[in-house]
C-alpha cells in the first residue's frame, strides 16, 4: 500500500495525524488506533527513506500512539473495579487534535486578512532622523531593544588586541561610578558613548552590567526616540550614590 502524500509538508505530528484522519474519513471520537498507527509509522518510514530529517516530535507521537494502542489492548478491568474517572486513552489526543485544528483555522483566517504591505499600503517615511524630538516623546526602552543593541555592539566592536601588556580588570562598581561622573558632566549619554572607543569585550560586558545596575537602582533611565531610535541614558532624580553600598559583593559580581 502506498501513501501518496507530500511528505515534507507537515507542520508536525498533530498536523500529520489530522491529515490521516481526514483522508480516511475516520470518526475523531472513535479513532481506530491500530490503523492510524500503521499509517503514521509508514509515513515516518517514507520520510526517513527520503533522508528527511524526522524531527523528534514525530517519534514522540509514534511512541504515544503505540502506548495508547497497548492500553486499548489490555483487558478491561472487571466491572466493580472500574474507576469513575477512567478515561478513554485516546481522549487527550483527541482534545489536542481539536484544539490544534482550532488554531490552524484561526491562522488561515488571519492570513486571509488584508495585510499592510501586501494588500494595503501606507505612506513610508524615509528619514525619521530628521527633526528634533522633544524629550517627553521618548519611550521607555524595552528589554528586547536593549538586547539587540548589546548584540550589535558585540558584533562590531571587539577586535584582536596585539599589544596586550597589562591586564587591568575593570569592576562593575568602578564602572558605575565612572558613568555617574560622566552623567554629572553631561546631561545625557547615548548607548554607544557608554562604551567609549574600541573597548575590549570585557569592557563592553562590564559597562553593560553597570548600566543595567544603574537602571535597577533607579539612578538612571533608558529612553529611546521612538522605536528603532537611538537609546539614551539619562540620570534619574534619585538618592545620591553615597546612599548605596557599591561593592562587587553587594551587586552579586563578587
Amino acid at each position: 500500500m502506498s501513501y501518496d502524500i507530500k511528505i515534507d509538508n507537515f507542520e508536525g505530528p498533530l498536523d500529520l495525524l489530522l491529515h490521516l484522519i481526514r483522508k480516511n474519513e475516520m470518526d475523531i471520537y472513535n479513532i481506530p488506533i491500530a490503523e492510524i498507527t500503521v499509517q503514521y509509522l509508514a509515513t515516518i518510514d517514507t520520510m526517513q527513506s527520503l533522508n528527511l530529517d524526522v524531527a523528534g516530535e514525530f517519534l514522540l507521537m509514534a511512541a504515544t500512539l503505540l502506548h495508547i494502542k497497548s492500553r486499548l489492548l489490555l483487558p478491561q478491568p472487571e466491572e466493580e473495579y472500574i474507576e469513575e474517572d477512567e478515561e478513554d486513552p485516546r481522549a487527550e489526543l483527541v482534545r489536542r487534535l481539536l484544539e490544534y485544528q482550532k488554531y490552524q483555522a484561526a491562522a488561515r483566517e488571519l492570513d486571509e486578512r488584508e495585510l499592510l504591505g501586501r494588500e494595503l499600503f501606507a505612506r513610508t517615511f524615509p528619514s525619521p532622523e530628521l527633526g528634533e524630538q522633544e524629550e517627553d516623546e521618548f519611550v521607555a526602552v524595552g528589554l528586547y531593544d536593549l538586547v539587540e543593541a548589546m548584540r550589535a555592539l558585540l558584533r562590531q566592536r571587539p577586535q584582536a588586541a596585539y599589544h596586550e601588556v597589562t591586564f587591568e580588570q575593570l569592576s562593575v562598581s568602578e564602572r558605575i561610578n565612572q558613568i555617574l561622573t560622566q552623567l554629572a558632566d553631561r546631561e545625557r549619554l547615548t548607548f554607544g558613548e557608554l562604551f567609549g572607543e574600541s573597548p575590549s569585550r570585557h569592557e563592553v560586558v562590564v559597562s553593560f552590567l553597570a548600566m543595567l545596575e544603574l537602571v535597577k537602582l533607579r539612578m538612571a533611565r533608558l529612553l529611546q526616540e521612538a522605536r528603532f531610535g537611538t537609546i539614551w541614558l539619562y540620570p534619574a532624580v534619585a538618592e545620591s550614590p553615597a546612599d548605596f553600598e557599591l561593592d562587587e559583593e553587594a551587586l552579586g559580581y563578587g
Binding site: Q101, A105, A106
Partner: peptide, 13 residues
C-alpha cells in the same frame, strides 16, 4: 475563534 467538536473537512491551504 471557531470551536470545533468535529473534524473540519476544509483542508488547510
Amino acid at each position: 475563534l471557531k470551536e470545533f467538536d468535529q473534524l473540519s473537512l476544509d483542508l488547510p491551504l
